[in-house]
Structure formats: C-alpha cells, structure tokens
Design a protein around this nucleic acid. Structure first.
Lengths: 232, 232
DNA sequence: GCCAATCAGGTACGCTGTTCGCAACGAACC
DNA sequence: GGTTCGTTGCGAACAGCGTACCTGATTGGC
C-alpha cells in the first residue's frame, strides 16, 4: 500500500491489451524461433516476448514446453501432402522425399522426434498416406507396414547424418570457415596417424557426392530390397 | 572478520577430501545416471553428488555439460568391437546389430546423436571397422562409403522408432499399464473414425512382429539393394 | 447497471549450467 | 625448515529456465 503512488493519476495505466494468442499463433511463433535461431533459443519467455504477451499466459493454451514441442512437430507435418499415382515405388519415393524436405527445413526436428511417438493428427494422416502409397505392393498389410517403416527409418537416419555437421557448426556459433579451420587439422592428423586406412581412403580418394545423390542411392537400395521380397 | 567464530577451535574443519574425480570416472557416472534415470536427471550437480565431489570441481575436467555428453557418446561406443570374417554381408550385418544393441542399451543416445558429428576416437574406430567390413564388396571406396552410410542410417532410424514409445512412456512417468490405458482409447477412437483405413488394417489385421524381426527385415532389404548395385 | 465468470500476466520458487575467487595443499627453492 | 608458488577443490553467486499461484482487470449475461 505505502509504496503505491499517492496520486491515482500518477499510476501507470496497465497495458490494456487483451489479445488472446491462440494455440496456432503460439505454435507458429515457436516454430519460427526454432527454425531461425535453433532450439536452445526457444524458451517460453522468448515465445511470449515475440507474441507481445505475458509468459504465464501461454500456459492457458499449452500445457507445458514439452506439449508445445509435440504440437510443433505435428504442425510441421501438416505442410506435407502427397498425391498418389498407384505406382507404389514412385509414391513411396515421393513420400520419402517429402519427409526429407521437412526434416531439412526444420533442423531441430530430427533431434526432437526420438522419444515422441507420432500420434498427432497430422502424423497419423502422413502415416496413413505412406501406408496407402505402399499398399499396391501386396495385400499383406504386415508386409506393407514393414516396408513403410523401413523406408521411413532410412530417411530419418540419413537426414540425421546429413544434418549432424551443419547442426554442430551452428551450435558452436562459428562461421563455416572457422569451423572447417578447426576440424580440418584434426582430420588431417587422424589420416596421418595411419591407423584409419579405410577412412583415409574415403576422405582422400572418395568422390564427393551431393547429399541428394547419397540419399537417392540408399533409398534405391531399400526400395529394391522391398521389391525383391514382396509377395506378389 | 567479525562474523567468524571467535574461538579458533569452534571453526569447522573443512572437509579434507582431496580426491580428484578424473574424466573417466565423471563420464562413467554420467552414463550410469542417464541409463538408469534418463537424460533429464543428468545434471552437473547430480553427477558431482554421486561422485562425492563439489559441482564446480567437475569443470576442471570437463569444459561443459555439452562436452560431457560428447565424451559419454564416444565412451559408449568403446564397448563395440567386431571381428571381421571377410564376408561383407555377414560383417556389415554384425556391425548393424552391434550399433542397434548399443542404442538400445543407452536409450538417451539416439536423442543426442543428431547435431553431433561423430569425430571422437571410438566413433572413428567404429566407422573404420564398418568401412573395413564393407570393403570386400568392391574396390570403389565411394560405393563402400555409400553402403555403410545407408546401413547405419537405417539402423539409427529403426532403433529410434523402436525406442520412441518406450521413451515417451518413461518420460511421462506412468507405468506401462497406465500408459496403455491412456493411449488405447485414443487409438480406438482414431480407428473408429474410419478416416485411417490402412492404419486401422495395420493395427487390427497386422501380425505382431517382434522388434528383432522388423529390424531384420529392413536390414535385409538394404543389404539386398546394396548387393544388387555393387560394381563387381 | 451490476455481478459472476473468465482470463492475462506479475511475481516467485526451485532448478539449471556456469564463473569467480578463495582456501588448502604439494612441491620446489632459498 | 620456512617460504613461496602453482595447482586443485569447491562455496557462493548469477543469469536464465519452466512453471504454479494469485491478483486484478475485462467481459458476458442478466
């Protein structure tokens, strides 16, 4: 009481903003932050600040930070959509490419998927689409499911590998040049030790394939293997 | 000065422990905590407490928590070792099984690998072993590297899928029964909505394959694809 | 025009990773 | 033997986090 200003008109008007942020806005803002500044920058306070609202208000719409991440993951999948042609191989490849594109667009995604079963609406919708893509293979749903799981596992794994260095670089806060300058000598040292002959051959003799080529190669292997094993 | 006890013998003897924890002990303790209680329980204070040392002391041996995680990942890979037979298919499969075993033994691992390039001593040693396993395939090191990457990507992806539900369950703190009781009705609802026909077929008609069977199926696909494409 | 229900958000708690600087020790030197 | 000096353990403190609580303003129904 005593430390309130004595004169009523001297009191600051409390900001009269009464805008509800809504779950969608929160999720979208959070995704933007994570995409542009990385996951560590994504705090509830930060989201609230970007939204111009109070931190505690977010908890009216989202149960926890963890919940928010679940919502972000599901939201990000809503962008995916596949038109099926009936050619299982082409359709499954198309799904694979879309998943890859999503994972690359949101670099934080691959690190957050482990530990979260994909049960959101969009996750299920995408899973349904993948199963539908592979369905023409055979009537054996168990085989279809196995094929889909194998393809998606491969996609997730490769993209994770693909992103690893990029992410580490970003996390270190170094520029690309500084990063290479710090890793290069170490690699050179490893090679010169002579203890890693195959690795050395890979680095020195190996051709530099683009990430797309590498992806395509492995995807082809998986699809070939599926085709060969499919009960007609 | 004034707030020191006046009597010298009233001063508490500072604990005279002078034991250096050493990096190895720190890493081992951290791995144990992460394995048994999950990554969220792994705090620097917790590690220090288990070690009976002061929190700040850890920073004499480990630069940061992030560094500690890098060390943990590399340490965990030191357990892996493969004897090569010269049969590329058997050897590559053996490497795959080992990686899977490691990932399953340390459930926190799959969530921490994304974003960290595997440049530790043991990571390199394992990568070298994988390349050596695949080397008999062909003299083309680029192809060998592609094959290894594809196999490891698949392994990482499947195990991540395999662990997802297990991890979520653990994270929620619920027992297995409680978890199933909370997920079951939701799945039932999804099926009854009729909007996910393939998914429903999978759940209802699909045979329950064990995790090993699923793993083996996909691994076979990848290896078949590699075999078919290998330049002789 | 009033009252009850609703809801934004300030404040605070307990936790985190990390730094600073001091205290205690071993060794090395006069 | 006494003194200095580098090393090492670590208490205390700081900034920032997720989140619960509760106050006070706003609004819809009567």
């Amino acid at each position: 009481m005593a430390d309130e200003p004595a004169l009523v008109w001297a009191k600051e008007r409390r900001s009269p903003r009464r805008q509800a942020p809504s779950v969608e806005q929160i999720v979208r803002t959070a995704i933007t932050i994570a995409d542009t500044e990385g996951l560590p920058a994504l705090s509830m306070r930060r989201v609230a600040a970007d939204l111009g609202s109070g931190t505690a208000s977010l908890y009216r719409y989202v149960a926890s930070r963890d919940d928010l991440l679940d919502l972000m993951i599901d939201e990000v999948k809503s962008a995916e959509d596949t038109e099926l042609t009936g050619d299982w191989r082409a359709d499954l490849a198309s799904v694979a490419h879309q998943v890859r594109a999503t994972l690359l667009r949101h670099p934080w995604l691959s690190g957050e998927i482990p530990g979260r079963p994909a049960l959101g609406t969009n996750s299920l919708r995408r899973h349904e689409a993948a199963l539908a893509a592979a369905a023409p293979l055979t009537g054996d749903i168990t085989f279809v499911a196995g094929a889909v799981d194998a393809v998606l596992a491969y996609v997730f794994g490769t993209v994770t590998q693909e992103l690893a260095e990029l992410q580490a670089q970003r996390r270190s806060g170094l520029t690309k040049e500084q990063w290479q300058a710090s890793v290069g000598p170490y690699i050179r040292e490893v090679i010169e030790s002579g203890e890693y002959p195959q690795f050395s051959r890979r680095v020195i003799e190996g051709e530099d394939r683009s990430a797309e080529e590498v992806f395509e190669f492995g995807l082809g292997c998986v699809l070939d293997g599926i085709a060969a094993r499919a009960p007609h």
